[in-house]
Amino acid sequence: MNQSLAVLALLMTMQADTAAAGSIRFQCLYHFACSKFGDCGSADFTLEFVIDSTTKRAVLIGNNGLATVQAYEGANSVTFLEALASGAVQTTTIADDGSSVHSRHTIIGENISNSQFIGTCTVGQ
């Protein structure tokens, strides 16, 4: 299924109880990355998050498709937390000025594979 259609279907489901619900979309581009070995360099990595304004439910649209995430809104940023089946987590924090960091903590087999991406996000409806 087309990712845009999947997001639309999910948002329609999330909005079933709310007649006037809206959504906030964060489109993020990460241009710098570091691995657990300290190797750092340029990156070309994108993520997109959508939050239902009424229910506060959130989804991640990424290179692995669509995933439900938790959104934590604070005074100066929003953080998205994706809990993986392995028990590891991935987090993305977006500051009010659009700067962002995406941290991957992934288990591959019995080994941890972590990396961190630095970039910017734009906000839309």
Rank of each mutant, 00 (worst) to 15 (best):
I51H: 04
A9N: 11
A71L: 02
Q15S: 12
T55M: 04
S99I: 04
V7N: 15
K56Y: 10
T93F: 00
A6D: 13
Q27D: 12
I51Y: 07
D96R: 10
I61Q: 14
F32H: 10
R57V: 11
S113H: 08
C28S: 02
L66Q: 14
L66D: 03
T18L: 00
Y30F: 11
L66W: 01
G41R: 01
H105D: 15
K36V: 07
T92N: 13
R25M: 14
N111A: 14
S42N: 08
Y72V: 15
C34E: 11
L60I: 07
S77G: 07
I94K: 05
I112H: 03
T54W: 02
D44Y: 00
N63T: 06
T68Y: 03
V59I: 15
H105W: 01
N114R: 07
T13G: 08
G119W: 01
E82L: 13
Q90M: 01
G22F: 14
F26I: 04
V123R: 10
A6Q: 14
H102E: 04
L60A: 05
N64T: 12
A20Q: 15
H102F: 00
I24D: 04
S77N: 14
D52R: 02
N2E: 13
C34N: 10
G124C: 03
G65T: 11
D44K: 04
I24Q: 06
L8S: 11
T55V: 08
V78I: 03
L47F: 04
F117A: 07
F26C: 05
T18K: 00
T92W: 02
A75H: 15
L81D: 09
G62N: 15
L84I: 08
F80I: 08
S23N: 06
G38T: 01
F37N: 13
V123P: 01
E48W: 02
V69T: 06
S42Q: 11
C34L: 15
D17M: 00
A95Q: 14
R57D: 14
I108P: 01
C121N: 07
I51A: 00
E110Y: 02
V101Q: 02
L29W: 00
L81P: 10
D39L: 07
T122I: 10
V59F: 04
L81H: 06
I107T: 10
T120A: 15
F37M: 12
T120Y: 03
G98E: 03
